[in-house]
Amino acid sequence: MVKKTAQNEGMRRSTLNKHKPEFLVEMLRRMLLIRAFESRLPVLSTQSLLRGSSHACIGQEAAAVGACFALQPSDYVTSTHRGHGHTIAKGGTVKFMMAELLGRADGCCHGKGGSMHIADFSIGMLGANGIVGGGIGIATGAALSCAIRDSKQVVLCFFGEGAINQGILLECGNMAALWKLPLVFLCENNQFSMSTRPDDVTAVRELSLRAEGMGIPGRTVDGMDVLAVFEAVSAAVERARSSAGPAFIEARCYRFEGHFLGDGLKYRSKDELALWHAKDPISNWRNRLIKGGIISENDAATLAQQTQDELDQAVEFAKSSPAPDPAAVWEDLYA
């Protein structure tokens, strides 16, 4: 962690000054929107409006937003089973996402995907994935497609530290490095597969060492710091776009909630959670923007209220959307 010296504070301010204020505020707004979205899930679940499994990314908003803000709209993202945040960060519309979670006809996948298969191709979001590591191959193929088409697009591939031990990472990491594909591997290390920690299941302590072994430069960033993630991913994206090849970034963050709704959380202590809550990516960013004179307390409160209002509207939209037409069961099986 960075020590709070006057010099470091000065460095931080100058870092903020490198970016347009509205960009920095939009980072905050987007993180607030993700948290507002995820915070609705327990209520909707209690009302029996959600089916199956929903995986919230509360605590991981900085990784999603920092990484996606380093992309152009035409760039691609692949996601994990914890994909709501990535979708919102890439520009997803919350009302269509919420309708999807409720299994309604107006959902972004017309109610056929749900939380684990949320996707929005119109913004380059190529899908969440119910298979751990399932997005890695799709991202690599999309990157090969970009390279062959010489489209100058970049692919950002999110996966969790649990996916680090899937064989597909070695297979695709090798191809990406060999062919210098425009791809950024973004490993969100949220400290838990379900209950197991990296130390329980992975022999290497520095996950980026895996990347080095595949011929991909790897680094670790503070995944609770949206600007640190943004800057690391921006450098990787620039490198990828210039055909210099893929990069691997481990964003160290923390899953504040359970693996899914209803997880009893017996595998971690309240003290540990409190330590990570102190690093909350949203309240820290908000405070930093206030301290840096970018926004006022009032602005921040208004922003938070606006995101809640947006979610109110999204939930109302979703609830009023009809169930899919029965004919839909046979639709879109084949193109």
């Binding site: 190529l126 690599t140 193929g141 597909i168």
Partner: peptide, 17 residues
């Protein structure tokens, strides 16, 4: 890398190839 090359095919196909 059979899993990898088929997966790469899927990703490439989903993005215009």
């Amino acid at each position: 890398s059979e899993e990898g090359i088929v997966a790469v095919g899927v990703g490439a196909a989903a993005t215009g190839m």
